[in-house]
């Protein structure tokens, strides 16, 4: 049945936006865990460990996110598992996002000068103490703007979860569009909702970056 696009539809889309936000939050936590492991691996003394992290990043970043989602959702289902789309999506976003976040954080840690490590060592700090008290506090400041930028990327990427049947805002938009037959209005509203979520984050990331650069 075709009905008009009403203010109620905007409410439904707004309601679906919380699933987008929840998906992004879950994916961010997962990506942070993977990213932290990767960044630490890149600092390892052992060449094989560093190499493994590099191969992971190359492999993951060479395959589209959509393929990861389908592999985890439809592919793993073939093995005889009942895969929950939320689990597949968060896993897929974490595998994929972790590779990016790992690179961002490694870059931030790498930008701290060697003399800082040496100063820590001269004070008799162990490697883990140097990391905790010297390197991490300084690199966090450098890492925050690109990490927020990553979050924006992630929020946009959650739209792809609609393809494995998660009812987030893009999927809700498809359903609303089919019911009202007003695709232009519906998708512009959907785009506006993403914009409302992402634009403040982008601006925040920029102003932090400026503030940090001014402080140098």
């Amino acid at each position: 049945m075709i009905r008009g696009f009403s203010p109620n539809d905007i409410l439904f889309l707004l309601g679906a936006l919380r699933w987008t936000a929840l998906l992004a939050a879950g994916a961010f936590v997962g990506s942070a865990v993977v990213g932290l492991v990767l960044a630490t691996m890149r600092l390892s003394r052992f060449r094989a460990v560093r190499w493994l992290a590099i191969v992971y990043v190359q492999l993951v970043q060479g395959i589209p996110l959509l393929v990861w989602l389908f592999l985890l959702y439809f592919g793993v289902a073939m093995l005889g598992f009942n895969v929950d789309p939320w689990l597949a999506a968060i896993l897929g976003f974490s595998i994929y996002g972790g590779a990016f976040l790992g690179e961002v954080w490694r870059g931030a840690m790498g930008s701290i000068e060697v003399t800082q490590w040496e100063a820590g060592a001269a004070l008799g700090l162990s490697i883990s103490q140097q990391l905790r008290h010297v390197i991490v506090p300084q690199s966090v400041q450098i890492a925050i703007p690109p990490t927020i930028g990553f979050l924006v990327q992630l929020i946009k990427n959650t739209s792809l979860a609609s393809t494995i049947g998660i009812l987030e805002v893009t999927r809700e938009g498809q359903l609303t569009s089919a019911a009202t037959y007003q695709p232009m209005t519906v998708y512009l509203v959907v785009a506006a909702l993403y914009f409302a979520l992402c634009f403040p984050l982008t601006q925040w990331s920029r102003s932090l970056e400026r503030k940090f650069n001014a402080g140098r």
Binding site: N157, L160, T170, G173, V190, A191, T202
Partner: peptide
Amino acid sequence: NTPLLVQLF
């Protein structure tokens, strides 16, 4: 600040 998928739609 908007997804490619929505731009396509």
